[in-house]
Amino acid sequence: MSHISQEKLQEWSKLGHRTVLGETLEMLAAENPRMCTVTADLTPTARLTGFKEKYPDRFFDVGIAEQNLIDFSAGLAIEGLLPFVVAMSGIVPMRCAEQMRSAVGYMNLNVKVIGIEAGVRFGPLGNTHYGMDDIAVARVIPNITVVCPSDPLQVHKAVRAAAEYEGPVYVRLTGGPGFPVLYPEDFDFQIGKAIEYRPGRDVAFITTGSLLAEAVEAADILAGKGISARVVDMHTVKPLDTDMLDTVFKQNKLIITVEEHSPIGGLGGAVAEYKAGFSDSPRQVMASLGDRFQKLGDHEFLLKENGLKAPELASLAEKSNG
């Protein structure tokens, strides 16, 4: 991979995940002439303005038409191109789930779909714009790999890994400007291989996406109370890293899955499905957005409302640990 300097990391931390995405896509385009981007009238939102200027021949805007967005990209992939679709996670993949299944998944095509501003990132825009079900929709389709990177460097690495991977990938971005650097140094990122971010004996937080930051902070709070919390960065929700889960099942007596998504069909659901095969596995508690439409509010407000900030996660662990 190309080297990412400390200055760059600081800049990315300030500007946030979408900026990292835009810059990474331009790097990929410079390296691979088959790589292209596809949007449905979201060029500035998707941070594709630079890409469009530099690579006009490899930039496609299908207009506000998300079903066409996916099938068109499937066509590009069949003919050997490497399309990266960038769309709002609240609309895609739900709006075009059938295209994701019948074209992209069924034919196992090399289409990469990036869902931006997932979870409740869009805050005051309201429920039509929240991505609360995108992992579930992507995950239920055979052949589609689902990756939810946490911090800016991991976004960069995940998008690169998606480009190198042969087959359909859904990459889900949560987090935004002013996000802490969780991975200050280069690290090994492999699709399907979870990262033990911090060891711990008692409770295990298993997180996906940017909520890793809250779980790490919650582990700090718990450490102060004599509770040892393991933190696992399960950046790939499909396929799940079952080796890592097996270790957690053996060593921890409580699991808290943490995700900015519905408890149905996301990380919590995936872990529970795997866990169901064991007669003696630890108890699992799900921290999520719940099975409900959200109130109106900004991102931080909604995370707090849903118990997804560090203090709430810590008290959930404390309460459930008894």
Partner: peptide, 9 residues
Amino acid sequence: ADNSFLSGH
């Protein structure tokens, strides 16, 4: 505003 019914859509 947080908790308002006047959302962005």
